[in-house]
Structures are given as structure tokens and as C-alpha cells.
């Protein structure tokens, strides 16, 4: 089950919980997204993340389930924060466990690409030159489209 929270998370503790009691896992690939302190030439003081409570959890759980099915993962987990984040803080943690590394890498990559284009989160940068809602990037759509089965 995915988790959406305002609080910071501890990557080590989350990894330990994810693998606890499992002696059947071949490997885990994880991705941690971080808050940058710059955007173009501007300094970012903080990042605000809004989300759609209810739909967010549903979409993230769907993405976990789809990753498990599509890449035959042994386990999948997404933790995503919302609220005010400061530079260098972690935004998102994605973990994929599989019997062998290829599926774990692919499953993790799929989940982060998929959530960037499906999960209802919106970033607003509070910068040296004002506050701006970020626009979606075409490159993220292309990255997600790569995983479509067809």
C-alpha cells in the first residue's frame, strides 16, 4: 500500500520495513526524489506540494499493483510527501523488489515515470523571483509512454 504524508521519511527505516521478514527477495531497487534549491537561474527557498486526497492514494496503489503485475515484482512501495518541503529534503521514495535485478530496476523506473504523469500532485516553487506553479513537462509524458504495453 502506498503512503501519502506531510512528514519526512527515513529511507533506511522504510527499506528495513519493506524487506522485514522476507528471505525470498533477490534485490531491491529504490529511487529517492529530492527537493532542489534552484530552478533555472532562480533560487528556490521552498517547494509546496498540493495533492488530491483520496484520488492520490488510489492512483499510487494502482501504480504499485500495475508494477507488480507488469514486472513480476515480489513487492512494491511508494511513499510521497505533500506540504512544504525545503531544499535537500526527500519528496518521494519508490522501492521495487524482485527475484532478479532487471525486473527490480524496471519496476522502480516504471513507478516513478508513471506517478509523475498520473498521480494528482502539483508543485509550486517559492523562489527568489516569486511563487510559481510548475507546468507539466512533455519529457515526462514521453518517459511514461515508453512503458505502455502495446
Amino acid at each position: 500500500m502506498a503512503r501519502v504524508q506531510a512528514e519526512m521519511f527515513d529511507v533506511g527505516a522504510e527499506f528495513a520495513a519493506f524487506t522485514h521478514g522476507r528471505s525470498d527477495l533477490g534485490g531491491v531497487v529504490s529511487f529517492v526524489g529530492l527537493t532542489r534549491d534552484f530552478s533555472g537561474d532562480a533560487t528556490v527557498h521552498k517547494l509546496e506540494l498540493e495533492h488530491y486526497p483520496g484520488m492520490t492514494e488510489r492512483q499510487l496503489n494502482d501504480i504499485e499493483r500495475q508494477a507488480v503485475t507488469q514486472f513480476t515484482l515480489q513487492a512494491a512501495k511508494i511513499i510521497h510527501r505533500y506540504g512544504i518541503l525545503l531544499p535537500s529534503e526527500a519528496i518521494v521514495l519508490v522501492m521495487a523488489a524482485a527475484p532478479h535485478r532487471a525486473a527490480a530496476f524496471e519496476g522502480c523506473w516504471f513507478m516513478i515515470d508513471w506517478l509523475k504523469t498520473k498521480a494528482p500532485f502539483w508543485k509550486r516553487e517559492h523562489r527568489s523571483d516569486g511563487s510559481f506553479w510548475l507546468e507539466a513537462k512533455a519529457s515526462d509524458d514521453l518517459a511514461a509512454a515508453r512503458w505502455a504495453r502495446g
Binding site: 526524489g33 509523475k116 494528482p120 502539483w122 507546468e135 507539466a136 513537462k137
Partner: peptide
């Protein structure tokens, strides 16, 4: 019914 811009999480 919800209206929102294209998403920018992750």
C-alpha cells in the same frame, strides 16, 4: 468533479 492542471509530482 475535480478540475486540475496536468500533474507535476514525483
Amino acid at each position: 468533479v475535480a478540475f486540475f492542471p496536468p500533474v507535476t509530482g514525483g
